[in-house]
């Protein structure tokens, strides 16, 4: 069977003995394709999860001095450091103005007798820009800083660590 569109050979020449619809199931094909799409969604989610890095806020507190001071420092991957009062009840971290949950994951006293608390938050790499603005609020105190690519062990005695989550 020939059609007029000379540039389209697939329409100009149709396969001989075209399989009739009753000899196979288009519905099976549709189901199978949608199954593959669902699987692909799962794969994409996993890939995206890999990009999410937990950022550790390590708040080291001198047990003898309650310091009402905060210093926030964001690394390339958004790591945040903070020196905080010894009575922290609530930590709020804002990345580019958006509040991000920071969860207390650990606390204790290190070998030097310094109390510490470790907070963890998750930031998608895609959402973290080079000029990321990180702001932190603890109790009544608000601290703010821009990104910095160097570790901050400064006056606050604060440190941070960074872990990379590999979902796959």
């Amino acid at each position: 069977m020939k059609k007029s569109d000379k540039s389209n050979w697939a329409e100009k020449f149709i396969p001989n003995n075209m399989v009739k619809s009753e000899n196979f199931s288009a519905d099976n094909i549709i189901l199978s394709v949608h199954g593959k799409l669902e699987n692909e969604k799962g794969r994409i989610t996993m890939t995206k999860t890999r990009k999410i890095k937990p950022l550790i806020i390590a708040a080291a507190i001198a047990s003898t001095a309650a310091i009402s001071m905060i210093s926030v420092n964001a690394m390339t991957d958004g790591a945040v450091t903070a020196a905080i009062d010894s009575t922290i009840h609530k930590v709020k971290v804002f990345i580019n103005g958006e509040e991000t949950d920071a969860e207390l994951v650990d606390s204790g006293v290190d070998e030097n007798g310094v109390e510490y608390q470790v907070y963890e938050l998750y930031v998608d790499d895609d959402e973290v820009k080079d000029d990321n603005e990180v702001r932190m609020e603890m109790n009544d105190f608000v601290g703010e800083d821009s990104r910095n690519d160097e570790d901050d062990f400064g006056n606050t005695g604060v440190y941070y660590t960074e872990e990379v989550s590999e979902a796959e």
Binding site: M18, S21, A26, V33
Partner: peptide, 16 residues
């Protein structure tokens, strides 16, 4: 749209 294309062309693809 994908479902519609499958209905339309599945016979063609299956035959090949």
């Amino acid at each position: 749209a994908l479902d519609a294309l499958i209905k339309e062309y599945s016979s063609y693809v299956f035959t090949i």
